[in-house]
Design a protein around this nucleic acid. Structure first.
Lengths: 194, 194
DNA sequence: TGTTTATCTTAACAAAAATCAACCGATAAA
DNA sequence: TTTATCGGTTGATTTTTGTTAAGATAAACA
C-alpha cells in the first residue's frame, strides 16, 4: 500500500490526513493468471494499481486479440476512456500472471476529488503522463518500421520481452507473430556477423 | 475570446472573476499561411487556441514531414509533451492557412493553477480528453487497414479532407501519397459500381 | 513419466504497400 | 503569354508484410 503513497507523493506531497482518506477506500484483489478484469462491452468502473503481476489491455478485431498495452508492478491501469465517459468499453483487460491489485472505483475517485484539494492535481498529472506515453506510441507507428519498433522495445522495455509471449508482443507492435519471428531471426543474424 | 470562455465553461463553470484572471493573460497572434509556430528542438512554451485557420503538428523522419494531428477552429493545441516536460520538442508546428490564435505561456498556466481553484479540474479534463482522442488513434493503427482509416476520416472529420492537401493526409494515415491516391481511386470505383 | 497443449519457427506463396519514374492539371511566377 | 512549380495520378517494379500450412520446441498437465 505504501507503494501507492510513494507513487502519488512523487507527484505532490500527500499528508497523513489525505492518505488516510485515500487508503481507507483502497480494496485489494489477488487473482490467478489469466483472470479477466474487464470484458468488452462492460463499463469500466475501476482504476487498478498493480502490486504484483501484470495486466494487459487488448481489443478484439477480426476475432483476434490485439494488445494495446501491458502494465507491470507499480503502475496504474484502467480502461480509462470507458471509466471517464461511463460508456461500454471497446477494450478488455486480463492478467497474464498471478496478480495482486489495489483498486478504487468511480465513486471513490469522485470523493477524492471533492475531499482532497490536491487530488485534482494528481488526477491531472496522471492524465498528462498517460497522454505523453501514448503520444510516443503514435509517433512510433508514424515514423518507425516494425523492426525498429521492436528494437526500441527491446532496449526500452526489456520486461515486456521477458514476461510476455511473443505473439502478444507482435500484436502490440501491429504485426503478425510470423513476421516478428522473422525480424528476430534477421536481427540475430546481423548481430552475429556485425 | 468568448469562444475560449465557452469552451472552458463546458468543462466547469467559469466565474466572472476567474475569467478576468484568465483573459487578462491571453495574447493574440495573427499569422499568414505557412508560418512556423514551433521548430523541432525548441522547448514549447505556449498553449494556443485556434480562433481562425488551422494548426498542424508534425515530426520529421527520413527528411519527410509526417503529420501527427490537425487542429481547426475552437480547439486547443500545443506540443504538450514538450510543454509539460520542458524538454526540446520532437514535434514541429505550423499553420496551413492564415490563422488567428490566442495563447498563453507556461507561467500563465502556473498562475491559473495557483490562483483559480477550478483550473486544476480544467487542466485535468483537457488532458483526459486529449488522452481519449489519441487512444482512438492508436486503436486505429492497431486494428484498421489504411483504407478503413481513410474512410473513417472521411466520415468523422470531413474538414480534414476539405482543407488539407492529400499528401499531408497520407502521412497522417501512415501511408504514402501514391497509396492514398490508389485507395481513393478504388473507392470511387466501388461507389460507382455498387 | 509421457502426453497434450501452447508457442515459436520456417518455408512457399499471396497480398499490401513502398519506391521509382513519368505524366497531368492547376496555379503561381516571370 | 510562357514557364516553373506543386499536388495529384498512374504504371512498372521491388520490398514488406500477411497467409497458409507444416514442423519444432517448450511448457503444462495427467
Amino acid at each position: 500500500m505504501q507503494q501507492i503513497r510513494a507513487y502519488l507523493s512523487a507527484i505532490t506531497p500527500v499528508s497523513d490526513g489525505d492518505w488516510e482518506k485515500i487508503s481507507s477506500h483502497l480494496k485489494i484483489l489477488s487473482i490467478p493468471k489469466n483472470s479477466v478484469l474487464l470484458k468488452e462491452g462492460q463499463v469500466c468502473n475501476d482504476v487498478y494499481f498493480v502490486v504484483k503481476g501484470l495486466v494487459r489491455l487488448y481489443v478484439v478485431a477480426d476475432g483476434k486479440q490485439i494488445c494495446r498495452q501491458f502494465f507491470f508492478e507499480n503502475s496504474f491501469v484502467s480502461a480509462y476512456d470507458s471509466f471517464l465517459s461511463k460508456q461500454p468499453s471497446k477494450t478488455s483487460a486480463d492478467v497474464l500472471e498471478d496478480t495482486t491489485l489495489y483498486y478504487f472505483n468511480h465513486a471513490d475517485i469522485q470523493y477524492f476529488y471533492e475531499q482532497i484539494p490536491t487530488f485534482q492535481l494528481i488526477g491531472r498529472v496522471l492524465a498528462e503522463n498517460m497522454f505523453i506515453k501514448i503520444s510516443e506510441r503514435v509517433n512510433s507507428f508514424l515514423t518507425e518500421s516494425p523492426e525498429l519498433r521492436y528494437t526500441q522495445l527491446v532496449t526500452n522495455r526489456p520486461k515486456v520481452l521477458q514476461r510476455i509471449p511473443q505473439y502478444m508482443i507482435a500484436s502490440y507492435l501491429g504485426i503478425t507473430p510470423e513476421h516478428l519471428s522473422r525480424i528476430r531471426k534477421k536481427m540475430a543474424g546481423n548481430k552475429a556477423s556485425g
